[in-house]
Design a protein around this nucleic acid. Structure first.
Lengths: 343, 343
DNA sequence: CTGAAAGCGCTTACAG
DNA sequence: CTGAAAGCGCTTACAG
């Protein structure tokens, strides 16, 4: 009987080429030990039938997968989409497929997504995005990850501590210090930090760097207002409105990511404040669009795509005796959104 | 390839709770016909063991998957990352996982990616991104897609014709017409179109709309230069340099996507040309950052996230007797990058 | 309501 | 170099 409306199976290829499924399997997967002529005959038959191996069956039989799981907070956010781009490109080069989930920055959704990745028996899990300063918030995640790792899964994280796995860690603190030094060097003293929630380690680390610079310049970090809002463009706008109301003499805004900085620029423009004439603005990340803003955004460059690729590279390696950490340098990029403090 | 064969299996759960694997399977998958007390006992045991069902085994046994495949040109591009965001959110709500691949706009890579999705036996494939005016370029893709559909797979595309499957089609032509009418209405006559390659249907359709408007205004579309470059920010910059050299009296630039428009803005600023004072600029898509640019970008809004979600919705439905087409309205959004033609 | 058993489509020792 | 056969971990008719 002819199977209609179904994909051809290995056995169909085997029949068509007059060999056993064992031989057909070897010929198709490139396992050595099949004569060239037979292998070619099998490949030919597979091509004609439009045969594509069922990866579920393959995974089940072989006990391994070529699929990588990637967890991000929000794929629409350029920070994450650039990381994802790096992962997808390198994965394709290695013949691996990538399953992505986003979590909306919800720690619970995150755990659920990891669990679903585990269920899909992905070969490795990559987690991008800040963790929480309060390690206890991450306890369930840590548990899930450890369990997976113990069962032989590989895990790597980007920009995140506390999980006890291989990690790619951008120099958030040195980056924060560098951008603050730049601002101070331009003569600014009435500075405001525009920040996401301090519960995130990324935010806390960057802020710490800013404080390092203030302290080194002989200033009291406690004197610098830290305006908190969502870590988004809208959050940036919101903070500027508060700044204009509560700290009207501010001459420089240090935003802790580019998204917020873009919102700052937008709100300052709407409010008729010139940048950098009256107020300087800096960001953090150097998302692709930062250089095309007007004025071009002074920021701290993080090589997001490369960070994603590096995490994948770590995950594809054999695990080390203990968790590896790769530091990624953060580089200050000075553009037109920062200038000398007005006198 | 990582071995992941040390996780607890269904049979471990069955043993732990003193039932058969059939009963354990039913209890865990929520199939009716298991007494509450037994079901609870099984769930309890599963929880304690940290059991997560092997989806490969499940797929193989049941012949169906909860995984959706999504093909985009470049996930780092906001147009696609916003579509992906819509797909991921809706997928999560439906308990489905998403496998993403990007193709770098290479038709051959595209076919390969679809093939790999088929191999993964995903339940549905979503393809986002322009097709080619020359349908023959897509023949291999069409073949692959048809074969998959005939074998029972579901396919939906976003912004793409020629594939003979369910599609979500933005009103590119009416959108192009709307934005051109806006520019004409402001009195501009020395206009230049900044465009990606005309081989892409998306580009061709938008340009067609622009020409509709020109014609309706009694102008000869042949008189309007169409500068082509990569469909990216860098492409936009490039085109502006050419425009400045070859068409220095231009007063309005109609860019056929936001990325190019952003590049145009950037290059005009570097070249000391004021927008919209000397030259007006419009885009197409309304990516998230468009409203935060300076000046805010006049553009044509496409609800990308919604388009992604709609495609998924189509793919999850039973197939119709013939391919369904959903048109998505394109809405002109006027901001500050366009103004009256200088006299 | 519960279980024994067939089978999903592959891979891979184990023999020849 | 090639094949017969035992699984991989589930689901689901089919019986009881």
């Amino acid at each position: 009987m002819v199977r209609t409306n179904r994909s051809p199976r290995l056995i169909d290829v085997a029949h068509a080429s007059g060999v056993s499924i064992a031989t057909a399997s070897r010929a198709l997967s490139g396992t050595p030990g099949v004569s060239d002529s037979v292998a070619e005959k099998v490949r030919q038959a597979a091509r004609e039938l439009g045969y594509v191996a069922n990866l579920h069956a393959r995974s089940l039989a072989s006990g391994s997968t070529a699929t990588i799981g990637l967890v991000v907070h929000e794929i629409g956010d350029p920070y994450f989409s650039e990381i994802a781009s790096g992962v997808l490109s390198l994965a394709a080069e290695n013949g691996r497929t990538v399953q992505i989930c986003h979590t909306g920055r919800d720690p619970e959704a995150e755990v659920e997504q990891v669990r679903s990745l585990v269920a899909n028996r992905v070969g490795a899990i990559l987690i991008a995005g800040s963790g929480f300063v309060d390690a206890s918030v991450e306890a369930p995640m840590r548990l899930e990850v450890q369990r997976y790792a113990e069962a032989g899964g590989r895990v790597a994280v980007v920009g995140r501590h506390h999980l006890g796995v291989d990690s790619v860690l951008p120099d958030n603190r040195p980056g924060g210090r560098a951008v603050a030094e730049h601002i101070l060097g331009l003569g600014h003293r009435r500075i405001v930090v525009v920040s996401g929630t301090l519960e995130l380690t990324t935010v806390a680390d960057r802020l710490e760097g800013v404080r390092d610079a203030l302290q080194a310049a002989g200033l009291d970090p406690g004197d610098i207002p830290v305006l908190q809002g969502p870590f988004t463009r809208e959050g940036g706008r919101e903070c500027i409105r508060r700044m204009l109301a509560d700290h009207p003499r501010t001459t420089a805004v240090i935003a802790l990511n580019d998204d917020m900085a873009i919102g700052c620029l937008s709100q300052l423009r709407s409010s008729g404040v010139s940048v950098p004439g009256q107020v300087s603005v800096s960001g953090f990340d150097d998302v692709a669009v930062a250089q095309d803003l007007s004025p071009g955004l002074t920021t701290v460059r993080l090589p997001m795509a490369e960070m994603g690729a590096r995490a994948l590279t770590l995950a594809l390696k054999e695990p080390g005796a203990r968790a590896r950490r790769q530091r990624v340098p953060a580089e200050l990029v000075v553009r037109d959104s920062t200038g000398p403090a007005p006198r």
